[in-house]
Design a protein around this nucleic acid. Structure first.
Lengths: 195, 195
DNA sequence: ACCGCTTGCCTAAAGGCTTTAGGTGATTAA
DNA sequence: TTAATCACCTAAAGCCTTTAGGCAAGCGGT
């Protein structure tokens, strides 16, 4: 009997590839074992089961994405940095749809705190250095940036913009232009205005 | 043997309630049958199975949400209309988290076209009457509005903003203020600018 | 080189979910 | 009242998850 040489890492890698190929929902002990050419119970020595497997893929994706985003933002500022950050997310989602979907798995607070999640928040905050917002307003702005980026990618990947002109990439550029405008003219004091 | 009086509609209603209580992922033939006090195979006369059940919940939610949104927007214009539309989405997601999650189930194109989905798009477009954008720019703007609203609600419901000040409702108001600013100063010709 | 120990991967088995087939009793209409 | 319909049932097959326990591959010590 030739041993397959499984490790926790190799199992998770296979799960991540499977997620990208077939969708994150297809990541189960069963499908991963099949892909590895191994019987299902063999996974249980390396990984806790289907739930644990998904969590590990999420942590992997979060970390990979944070690495990419950090690299993209390094050496840029202002709108340049904003666009680089946003593009790194969208590109990652395009290349690794399953991993990106994994990114939004609900993690328990303890796991979330130990994940790369906080690095993502820190990157958004760093970008805002170019926009000169007060500290509490920065938090609101971080949330807006996250909403636009995540919301667009999610709708796009769900096929919301598919097969309808104009190109969704064009809309993406417009959304980032608009976000940049909004951040520069941050409306913290305009709350009372009527249109 | 007392008959339970199931109909397709009553089964879907039970499924929707179950989604709101336990999460959309818990909607299965099994859990719904349990909630209805009925054996699993009994559902198959009324509904096609787990997949069909989820699709029907999605269609129900899409229709309910479109009704609410249309009511909210009626008689308003400009920023008022934008805020009313956005709030109707967020309020619905708050009251019916499972149904809202169902809203983002991938439907096959035919089903999607027959759903209330197009009404949602039409509502966003209607709102933009107050912002005087050219037709192709309207499409970009519709996508941005969807991204901000959906992205925020999704991150909020995933617990992304939980337990960290300031209040997420405050951020929501800021995001809509910023969106209003962005729509009024729509950057269709500023694409070349550097920050 | 051999021997024993660790441990990786296996088979077996229990329990749950999905879905189809076919039966039985409750309701309805002649 | 009785016959027909149909709502809900039991039975059964197949897949997935997870635990328990076995066998043999490959390592460390001699």
């Amino acid at each position: 009997m030739v041993r397959a040489g499984l490790t926790a890492a190799s199992v998770v890698r296979a799960a991540a590839e499977l997620a990208d190929d077939l969708g994150f929902a297809e990541v189960t002990a069963s499908t991963v074992a099949r892909r590895l050419g191994v019987k299902v119970p063999s996974l249980y020595s390396h990984v806790g089961g289907t739930g644990d497997l998904r969590t590990r893929v999420a942590l992997l994706a979060l970390a990979e994405l944070a690495d990419r985003a950090a690299l993209a933002v390094a050496g840029r500022s202002g709108k340049d940095a904003l666009v680089a950050l946003a593009d790194s997310y969208r590109d990652y989602a395009g290349e690794h749809p399953g991993r990106y979907a994994a990114t939004r798995l609900r993690l328990d607070p303890e796991t979330a705190a130990a994940s790369a999640g906080p690095r993502h928040a820190a990157l958004s905050r760093a970008i805002l250095r170019g926009y000169h917002l007060s500290d509490p307003e920065q938090t609101h702005a971080v949330r807006l940036i996250g909403s636009v980026i995540h919301g667009f990618i999610d709708l796009e990947s769900a096929g919301g913009f598919a097969h309808s002109l104009p190109e969704s990439t064009e809309s993406w550029h417009r959304a980032l232009d608009a976000l940049d405008v909004a951040l520069r003219a941050w409306p913290s004091s305009l709350r009372q205005e009527r249109s």
